[in-house]
Simulated assay, not measured.
Amino acid sequence: MARKIKLGIIGGGGDSLIGVLHRIASFINDNYEIVGAVFNPVWEENINFAKQIGIKTDRIYVDFDTLIEEELKLPKEERIQVCSVLTPNFLHFPMAKKLLKNGFHVICEKPMTTTFSEAKILQSVLEENNAVFAVTHTYTGYPMVRQMREMIKDGALGKIQKVDAQYYQGWLNPVIHEKEKRASTWRLNPEKAGISCCFGDIGVHAFNMIEFTTGMQIDTILADLNYLYEDNKMDIDGTALVRFNTNAKGVIRSSQVATGEENNLTIAIYGDKGGLRWEQENPNFLYVLSDDKPVQVYKPGHAYNSELSLDGTKLPPGHPEGIFDAMANIYLGVARAIRGEAYNSGEFPTVMDGVRGMSFIEKAVESHQKGNVWLKIED
């Protein structure tokens, strides 16, 4: 078996959901070992968390800069090869940039940066350095999402006419209505989260899913956002109309105050030959729609699925796979890229997905601020 890739973790300590997700995902396919980390900026919490999860403490560093400095002192075959950046949004850009410039591969949480200009800089830095860069749009790792992509690529839907992506959560509803609570939430703080909360956090997932599954790029958007309170500087709900450079049109609906909703990401793509619909809360079912046949249901692990879908399926049919497996598929693709092995372009989102995602976020906010006007998404 190939030697395990040495992984470093930045952030994701304590009860962080993202931290658990990335750590477990990195273990699933036996490609990585965590050898160094800065889990928390508070040293006691940092070192205690490493002990709690059974990570050796000799390479648990006091801060990010020390991690890079000390790792570069080690022989190349011993040092961290790739770092997962799991910090709040405002730290993604400076950390990813410094990692790339010092010869590390990067797996970065989304949004990749807090501004489009930062995203373009990061793209340039990556081009100057021979590195692998992945943005963890986790849902692209689900086998049935990958099946959706391959079926559309193979022409199963014909000419795409309509797209509809929805991402509804309700977690902000208990927070947003109390001034003190909303003022103390980092995702509602522009200095830490960037210019957008809802669209920056989950709306960008819907945007990415549309482009990932259809293989088409959204050309222009018109957005209408909701801030709910005058003192709240961040969107917590919104809708964007989208147009492609064909006659296809669509809508992105996103909310974090949809009371009672948990993690309701749904995408539907309609062509002149048929339609496909997938729901994140029921990820093992891909619904195939047509005018002249009953609804078909595709499920993971069956021979009728595409090679990309089957490659991301670890269990026999009938055994549910979920979010950990989806993230693990992204880590698997990154491992193949780091080792120089052949891989499918759909195995992990790249820096270009991050760049387009930041353009989407900024243009959505700008469109709203300018009175709901059409604006072009930039590369």
Rank of each mutant, 00 (worst) to 15 (best):
D15S: 08
L126S: 01
V38A: 01
F90W: 12
K299G: 08
R253N: 09
M144Y: 06
V297W: 05
I80R: 05
M148D: 04
G203E: 01
H368C: 08
Q280N: 11
A335T: 07
L122M: 05
N31R: 15
G271I: 10
T115G: 08
E109Q: 11
Y343K: 14
L157Y: 01
S290I: 06
G19H: 00
N263F: 14
S117L: 14
I152H: 00
E128T: 11
T57I: 14
Q161R: 13
G250K: 04
C198Y: 08
G318A: 06
T66C: 06
A328G: 11
K299H: 12
I323R: 10
Y167E: 00
A134N: 06
L241G: 10
F212E: 00
A119E: 08
V175M: 08
G274F: 07
L222I: 05
G371P: 03
N329Q: 11
I55Q: 07
P300S: 05
Y32G: 07
D292T: 15
Q296E: 15
D237W: 12
I160H: 04
Y168W: 10
V288P: 05
R277Q: 13
Y142C: 09
P75N: 02
K162R: 15
G340T: 04
E45P: 00
I55M: 13
A328E: 14
T220I: 07
R356C: 04
I195V: 15
E44R: 11
Y139I: 08
Q217C: 04
G346E: 09
H205P: 01
I24D: 12
D219Y: 14
F90H: 15
H177T: 15
I210F: 04
N173W: 15
P94H: 11
V62H: 12
Y32L: 13
G346A: 07
K4C: 07
N247H: 10
I24W: 08
S117T: 14
Q161P: 00
D379S: 13
A206R: 00
E347F: 11
P190K: 08
S124P: 02
K299I: 12
A2Y: 10
E128V: 01
I5P: 05
Y298H: 12
K293P: 11
F244N: 06
T113H: 11
V204N: 11
V82P: 01
F133M: 11
I47L: 13
A258T: 05
D292W: 11
Y343C: 09
G275Y: 08
K98L: 13
H368D: 11
S196I: 07
P75L: 06
A119L: 12
G141Q: 08
K273P: 04
I10A: 12
L332Y: 14
I160P: 02
A240G: 03
V175D: 07
D65H: 10
G340H: 02
